[in-house]
Write a protein that binds this DNA or RNA. Structure first.
Lengths: 114, 114
DNA sequence: ACGAACGGTAAGTTACAACTTACCAATGAG
DNA sequence: CTCATTGGTAAGTTGTAACTTACCGTTCGT
């Protein structure tokens, strides 16, 4: 009855959107301002702002106001949460996979594996 | 200019949807048939079928037809792809983060950051 | 103090994906 | 063969989230 950290799931949800993923991957390469991002991504600046808001809420990015500009950068905590979420999944998946192979062997009689 | 395995990104995209994530997490606990999943998840059986199609296309689940039933199970390859994608991201993020802290220290020499 | 640069928020539109029902194909049991 | 099970596909509806434009607040330079 696996119980995952909701953080990781929410982070995955945030990166589910292609545009948001593009923005995030740009930030992975280094901090950028909002307008800077809007110059690269083919959407309006307010749209970028909205995406950044979501990414921030999910703990994937952080902000550093610098004068009139706001510098966005990747927040390691969000990525860490995603990794934890996936690692959990990975372990359980392998166990389930092994179990499946095992019960499959029971149907095709060869040799006991328990 | 980080180039990620597209596989991993597409897998993340698939798990972006909450319902699909729920279905996938059920499968992580063990193989299930379509109707079986539909009994648990609060959507119709065709809807489950459609979600499974997406998960299959993205390499996250596999099928084993057994008579008239179709048993779905987690495909480790998809999870592996996601992990690779995230690990890439993790490394780059840490590097970018370290860089950011460094240049920040140059500006505010008095602040300690560890 | 004023204007320019930067960016967040409000409000409205719209495309799409997540659903539904209806139908059909394939397998197994009698 | 016939009937019941199981599940994929077609077609249509709809809620919502990803956009847009318009507007406003804040910070900095001159």
């Amino acid at each position: 009855m696996t119980t995952y950290r909701t953080d990781g799931a929410l982070a995955v949800e945030a990166l589910g959107d292609p545009t948001r993923r593009a923005i995030f991957e740009l930030l992975v390469d280094g901090p950028r301002s909002v307008g800077d991002l809007a110059d690269v991504v083919p959407i309006s600046r307010p749209a970028v702002s909205q995406h950044l808001k979501v990414l921030h809420q999910r703990g994937l990015v952080d902000v550093r106001p610098q004068g009139t500009r706001r510098l966005y950068l990747v927040d390691p905590h969000g990525v860490e949460a995603m990794r934890a979420y996936l690692d959990q999944m990975w372990d359980s998946a392998l166990r389930a996979f092994a179990r499946a192979v095992e019960t499959d062997n029971e149907k095709n009689p060869r040799k006991r594996t328990t």
